[in-house]
Nucleic acid binder design. Sequence first.
DNA 1: CCTTCACTTAACCATATTGTTAAGCGTATT
DNA 2: AATACGCTTAACAATATGGTTAAGTGAAGG
Lengths: 124, 124
Amino acid sequence: MAGTDQLSAVFSALSDPTRRAIIAELAERDATVTELTAPLSISMPAVSRHLKVLERAALISRSRSGKWRASHLESAPLREAADWIDRYRRFWDSSLTRLDAHLAAVQAAGRATDRMVDDPRELE
Amino acid sequence: MAGTDQLSAVFSALSDPTRRAIIAELAERDATVTELTAPLSISMPAVSRHLKVLERAALISRSRSGKWRASHLESAPLREAADWIDRYRRFWDSSLTRLDAHLAAVQAAGRATDRMVDDPRELE
DNA sequence: CCTTCACTTAACCATATTGTTAAGCGTATT
DNA sequence: AATACGCTTAACAATATGGTTAAGTGAAGG
């Protein structure tokens, strides 16, 4: 991954189709490494390392139960990635309906995050 | 980048903070390579290659005018990335109550017979 | 012209990524 | 107690990434 910041780690994690497939699976239910490996055409060590990448990006959390390790999808990093892209939603969403809805949601949630939607610039 | 598909290329392009800064800049106005290089702390050849990455992901288009090459932000790939992440918006969107989220999860889990049609899982 | 300017390409280096197979480690099972 | 299971780590190889400086290309301009 290029940067070591959180957002870079998230986008980098999402840039692999295997990891996106894992996220799609975990969106339905928590799963063990074996369960996640089954539909994929790669070895379990490879899946294990994909999970490590997802974990480092905080996209998943993991719990141990005996010899099984369950992976669980975490929403915060996905939200941050969506928020970053949403800065540019005006470029493609002519009606701006969804942006309005999002702004309303943010407003309802609290005013601490207002600057996030106002300033499109990234300081890095 | 891991995959060679469009979405992988887009997420991979977004995984670099320099490229995100370039996108933020182009969101305000089209710019030449020299203009884009000025605020960055890397050489022009490095910027040139970042632009090539963005172009390969179709995040920007470029036009030639004499000895200047202007970069222009394209919205479609950003929209596609946003659409992918939006599949999981129910996991964090505060406008959904806990019950709504639970029902959405149950619905997703119970769609086994409809997977060929609307399964959010990605095959490649 | 002949140089300067804007930019790209080439060559090089260091590091990261993604896959493999084999080995290790701890928990279950028999 | 011994074996099988679930998963991770190690070691290896191939390819990609991202930075540098130096050289090349083509248009502008004195």
